[in-house]
Amino acid sequence: MAPTRTIKNKHAANKSGIVNSKAAASKKPVGDGVIKSRNKDGKKKPIPGSNVKGRPSFTDLAKKKKKRVYTAKELGIPELNMITPVGVTKPKGKKKGKVFVDDRESMSTILAIVQAEKEGQIESKMIKARQMEEIREARKIEAEKKDQERQARLEETKDVLRKKRKRKSHDGKGQDEDDKIIKDAVATSSNATKVKGNKKGGKKRVSFAAED
């Protein structure tokens, strides 16, 4: 930035109250509030507070900044500030263009790598498939086992029922007894329904009072 300084209160400089003061004596244009400093080549007015120890003055900083100016080339910054795709950047010291694979050695090297990779993939696939198969088999066996157990239980209950029936028949009652039992059961159930019917299902009778 250009070292220009502005005085915010332009009257403050002139109305210092002292007639023979420096500000009054200087032949500067009064109307323009902007005062261009001549610090470039002339003496520079020390800025108040700049002499404080330990704090680098403005001039010092300016000097320091001016010390070394790097060009874009030196810094390795691209001339135009744009993104360069990865494929476009060419590494230094490398062969320009494609690297062809035409000799047997390099081709067989690539082939060996590819084949090893593929073998590994296939092997892992097979292992996975085998494991899945094992799990499926185990589940199947388990299901079969459960089914068998259920079947066995059913058979057992059936046998128990059959034995019960046989025992009754051995007692001498025979088939007639069974029939009787069944008939009784039917009768009781029908009675139950009858009772139910009498209670609820009976015809409602309505009688009217005789008119006089």
């Binding site: 494609k98 690297v99 062809f100 694979v101 035409d102 047997r104 390099s106 081709m107 067989s108 690539i110 082939l111 790598i113 590819v114 084949q115 990779e117 593929k118």
Partner: peptide
Amino acid sequence: MRPLDEAETKVVFDKLANYCSDLKSLIAPL
């Protein structure tokens, strides 16, 4: 017409290896 570069060779072999068990015989000297 040009030979394949490394990446292309890898891709081609990779595809062939899906179907073939022995690829070395492909480039073996006659």
